[in-house]
Nucleic acid binder design. Structure first.
Length: 173
DNA sequence: TAACATTCCGCGC
DNA sequence: GCGCGGAATGTTA
């Protein structure tokens, strides 16, 4: 649903594995969790000709990601290029960015915030399309009542990220 | 047209 | 009162 633009893929090594960041000429446009299944070393196109600008962003991404994984709030993030999504998706992602550290919203809350309280399901779909997990806190979105909901990159990651923020799931005790 | 990372309402126990 | 099943609702591929 979109013409593919030129991207640059760079690895980000962290204590929990190697993430893969993708950049467009506008900013960070994608981030992938480390997968056990060996990353299929998809040859980054022109990884050698990475603009200095991108390398600079990558440095920020790397640092911000590590801070996030350490349970801290990133001091500064690289510019995010979310132009890949549809208008609705971008609205959702923007709403997610407003969620503060340690805060949680439900899919319904997000939908309501967009003025479409009935679009809860759509919000879920949009979150699933979120290209930049962690920075765009799709993990802070839970189902109504504190349910976990789902997560594209693996539910265990969602759990882990929530735990880092001290968010308790299902207050049951 | 079918599928989705949800919700809500109603009925049965 | 709690739990389960089914229908509704918006967006995307």
């Amino acid at each position: 649903m979109q013409t593919s633009a030129i991207h640059f893929a760079l690895p980000v090594e962290t204590p929990v594995g190697t993430f893969h960041a993708r950049y467009s000429l506008a900013g960070l446009c994608g981030l992938d969790f480390p997968t056990k299944k060996t990353d299929k070393a998809e040859p980054p196109k022109a990884a050698e000709q990475v603009p200095g600008r991108v390398q600079h962003w990558h440095a920020k991404t790397s640092r911000a990601l590590k801070e996030s994984l350490a349970g801290k709030v990133p001091k500064s993030l690289p510019p995010l290029d979310l132009s890949a999504g549809s208008a609705f998706q971008q609205q959702v992602w923007a709403a997610l960015l407003e969620i503060r550290f340690g805060q949680v919203r439900s899919y319904g809350e997000i939908a309501e915030a967009l003025g479409k309280p009935k679009a809860t399901r759509a919000v879920g779909t949009a979150c699933g399309s979120n290209p930049v997990p962690v920075f765009v806190p799709c993990h802070r979105v839970l189902a109504a009542g504190g349910g976990l909901g789902g997560f594209s990159g693996g539910l265990d990651w969602k759990r882990r990220l929530l735990q880092l923020e001290g968010i308790a799931l299902r207050e049951s005790a």
